[in-house]
Design a protein around this nucleic acid. Structure first.
Lengths: 347, 347
DNA sequence: ATGAAAGCGCTAACAA
DNA sequence: TTGTTAGCGCTTTCAT
């Protein structure tokens, strides 16, 4: 492959001049044209690896996500778009919700000299992230927090999101409200659970321990736990499910069991997915601003890699939104179920 | 950050020796231990950018996909897993189903000196891919083909997949069968349409032109086109929808219109999604082997970057599978609708 | 078994 | 405005 030397030779100039043309520095118009012609003729493309070694900047941001599911990929899509517009590339890595793998991926990204790191931590272990910071690599936590670490973060107000969801059920008159939690050692799981509890506190309602189940965010656990709940001698009348994968599993179980929603069981879920709208009935959900999470995280890491360390550590708490659809209606007037849908179709 | 020089100094050896330890070459046990101790003490990690510049290999594979939706991400997940096990990293880029962007992404990946390229082409334009090949970068096409180009590819047998889907409807007795096609200039779109047509040919059935609609793979086009079809004076009794996003849009329209499935309209869709199983009724689909596509593509590109050019150009045609669920039942016995589900739940 | 030294392709002082 | 040159951190002959 042609190098800058070949171009220099062909254009009859030094490599420095070619470099200047490449980087848009001042070069005499005529020289510039000769260089450009040589580049064109040779089909020359700069070697970004060499450039990175020299400049000590790769223009790459690493993004470690726990899975390639729709939630994080919608975030990643927004991140990539913003970052590309700034001239950065994104490497998205899958930690598989596994700390060991997360550590490996972070280490690999550090060795690849990424300029910055976006991480959705799988646990509260922070050693590998601290190390990255120590090496001067800015880190921004996305969606989840690692406690006791000074770090930028872009999060969602999970407590109040869950609160709204459960409060919605309570104000409609439900009392036996179950919950399918995610992993409590992950902040999103813990916070959503806290939101659930807080409603009972605020409304001075008793909590039925047997209606509280803790899964691991997987659809499998949603499937199992909803079955456990519904097999109870006195099953819940409503349930709050803490993330989209568990909701998926729960809905499958529900359709297998022939449980009618919302007649037998009202549902409010955290996270929205396109298909929830075409479920029968469409699901009431707490929608997270995925695109905004991505854009905010991208802008923040860009700010840091650009050397702006003001307001460190910066924390964004984006607000989720309750969207009431057919899966939750007042226990009194179930006939109206199909009319409760209030979401605007946004294809 | 510590470099190999620092390690060498600390261990009292040359950088060459440190490099040998790093790369597992023969070094006296005692020396090795001293080097390892120095590495540990300094928290040294090799700079992969420098290594890449020297070895002319980045151990990175680029993967350009048209979107970050569940289909391609499931493929990407499998690709990453295999590639990581070979010591390679993956950069997934979004072309947004847009040729200009695809060209930019390919160019960027080439400049970043990726060792190999996986591409889901957005069109039959091949110039940028030929250029990459010319520079010695192996290219493997995934899911879609570019005609008139000598290139490795991992594809699905779309013609027979679509054929099975439509034949299933025909053998059940349906005759007025509509189709919502994807982009015909993309091979998957064209091949699935061909499969549809071939059934009518083979069964010597007349084709109703007004039941053939061509969209662009987006859920929006599915939404619009199913409405067009159902607004016909003589609407179809069954419809074949050529990909998952259009199916999503179509199902939303169907639920809005209050059309009953399969009573008013039987549906067979290309692509499976987890949520199709919890739709009412669950959807009959042609399932693509996403994981196998990813693994096959990963293994093939690995073979090429490893210098094995045997059997070039190699083409895999993986077989999709028809899974009959509740959205398609013989028009005669609709009462049985909920019993036809034959898929095994695989959570 | 180990070290010296060249060089991968580029950028950035510094000189001219 | 342009050229000369050093050097980013690593690997890899070639010597020793």
């Amino acid at each position: 492959m042609a190098t800058i030397k070949d171009v220099a030779a062909k254009a009859g100039v030094s490599t420095a001049t070619v470099s200047r043309v490449l980087n848009g520095e001042r070069v005499k118009q005529e020289t510039k044209e000769r260089v450009l012609a040589a580049i064109e003729a040779l089909g020359y493309r700069p070697n970004l690896v060499a450039r990175s070694l020299k400049t000590q900047k790769t223009q790459i941001i690493g993004f470690v996500v726990p899975d390639f599911g729709s939630f994080f990929m919608r975030v990643a899509e927004a991140v990539e778009e913003i970052l590309n517009s700034y001239g950065y590339s994104l490497i998205v890595c899958n930690s598989n919700e596994d700390l060991t793998r997360e550590i490996e991926q972070v280490q690999m990204l550090v060795e690849r000299q990424v300029d910055g790191l976006l991480v959705v931590p799988t646990s509260s272990s922070s050693k590998h992230l601290l190390e990255a910071q120590k090496k001067g690599i800015p880190v921004v936590l996305v969606d989840r927090l690692v406690k006791g670490m000074q770090v930028d973060s872009v999060l969602v107000d999970n407590v109040n999101g869950a609160y709204q969801a459960v409060e919605h059920l309570v104000t409609m008159g439900y009392r036996r409200i179950g919950v399918i939690n995610g992993r409590l050692e992950v902040t999103t799981g813990e916070e959503r659970y806290r939101g659930y509890l807080r409603v009972f506190e605020d409304y001075n309602l008793p909590i039925a321990e047997e209606l509280i189940r803790t899964g691991d965010f997987s659809s499998q656990s949603g499937y199992i736990l909803i079955k456990e709940l519904m097999a109870l001698p006195h099953p819940p009348q409503a349930v709050f499910i803490a993330n989209c994968y568990m909701t998926m599993g729960a809905m499958l179980a529900i359709s297998e069991l022939g449980i009618r929603v919302p007649e037998d069981l009202a549902i409010v879920a955290f996270d929205d997915m396109e298909l929830y709208r075409i479920a029968t009935p469409p699901l009431t959900v707490v929608v997270q601003p995925m695109e905004e999470i991505g854009k905010t995280a991208a802008r923040l890491i860009y700010k840091r890699v650009s050397g702006d360390n003001s307001d460190f550590p910066q924390m964004y708490r984006l607000k989720p939104e309750l969207v009431v659809r057919g899966s939750s209606v007042p226990p009194g007037r179930l006939e109206a179920s199909s009319e409760v849908t209030v979401n605007k179709v946004a294809l």
